[in-house]
């Protein structure tokens, strides 16, 4: 039996996908202390942007060739919607009580779903998403990586590494850190903090599009509701990892993905628990994990205590 390594590999792919989305939550929260609850829908929009490109391309285009174009199309759609949401929905509410942007985000989330449902051709039901043809790769004896998981397993670490370097090394990245730590003082340095905030939304949008393509490949379909549960899981991952910390978001995603895979595989084998295992309960176990981690480390795995941020 190779249940454990196989569980780890499957969980890693799922977790990397959550992590990509979680980075969007955490970047925006880190800079404007806003939970963008419409971020799940930004993912969904990215999926439809990528699908649109796929439908435009000639039918015989190999998926490997189409993929970069689909990513660009998805990213354009996600980044456009994310930055427009910042500009027209959240920015006017920046000094409003915290509940106002939160409610706006929920409204925006419903509106985006309904817009896709109403106006995207045939989006009232799921739309097929291209998948790679062929068998899964056998890593070792009986441990398989699904072809369509390979994409996220490569893309997520690359995106993460690029973002980490950008934030730590570049002039703009340092301005992002300064804005996150002390926005008024950042302005006194000559940093246009409005632009930094837009950039945080844009990066989150681009990562959301990568995640959407990964999800489309895995599931073979996308639909207007896909953002809801993905967004909820990724938000969980961001909190689990310590909201505001980009490495924490990825770690939280991976921990959550592996926990979900493990709960699907193992819990039903625990005597007396067979009814609480399997795929149907994995979401419940994900949230149980969140509660447990927050009981022990309220600031999340890599988060700093709030006092340290002052």
């Amino acid at each position: 039996m190779h249940a454990l390594p196989q569980t780890l590999v499957s969980g890693l792919a799922l977790g990397a996908l959550y992590g990509l989305i979680a980075i969007g939550y955490t970047m925006v929260y880190g800079i404007v202390q806003l939970i963008n609850f419409a971020h799940g829908e930004i993912v969904m929009i990215g999926g439809f942007g990528a699908l649109t490109i796929h439908l435009w391309l000639p039918g015989d285009t190999p998926l490997a060739a189409a993929l970069p174009l689909m990513l660009i199309g998805g990213a354009i759609a996600s980044v456009a919607v994310a930055t427009a949401a910042e500009r027209f929905a959240y920015r006017p509410l920046r000094d409003a009580p915290r509940l106002a942007p939160l409610i706006t985000a929920i409204g925006l989330s419903i509106a985006l779903q309904q817009l896709v449902w109403a106006f995207y051709p045939d989006a009232k039901k799921s739309r097929g998403f291209p998948q790679f043809q062929g068998d899964s790769f056998e890593l070792a004896n009986n441990i398989h990586i699904q072809r369509d998981d390979l994409f996220v397993l490569i893309a997520a670490p690359l995106c993460m590494l690029a973002l980490g370097l950008f934030v730590a090394r570049s002039r703009t990245g340092r301005a992002m850190q300064a804005t996150a730590q002390d926005p008024d003082t950042a302005k006194l340095m000559g940093i246009n903090t409005d632009r930094i905030i837009v950039l945080a939304f844009a990066i989150g949008g681009a990562f959301a599009a990568v995640a959407a393509v990964a999800q489309g490949l895995r599931a073979g379909q996308i639909n207007f509701e896909m953002g809801f549960i993905l967004g909820l899981k990724a938000f969980t991952a961001a909190v689990l990892g310590g909201i505001g910390n980009i490495y924490g978001a990825m770690l939280g995603g991976v921990v959550l993905g592996i926990a979900e895979a493990a709960s699907t595989t193992y819990i039903q084998n625990i005597p007396g628990m067979h009814q609480l295992g399997g795929g149907g309960w994995k979401d419940v176990w994900a949230f149980v994990l969140l509660i447990l981690v927050l009981l022990i480390r309220p600031q999340g795995l890599l988060g700093e205590r709030v006092a340290d941020r002052a």
């Binding site: 340092r174 301005a175 850190q177 300064a178 730590q181 002390d182 950042a186 340095m189 000559g190």
Partner: peptide, 15 residues
């Protein structure tokens, strides 16, 4: 900026 280094703080002054 507490979580940036001293050198980085100075560099931000010259942003």
């Amino acid at each position: 900026f507490p979580r940036l280094t001293i050198a980085e703080n100075l560099q931000l002054g010259a942003f």
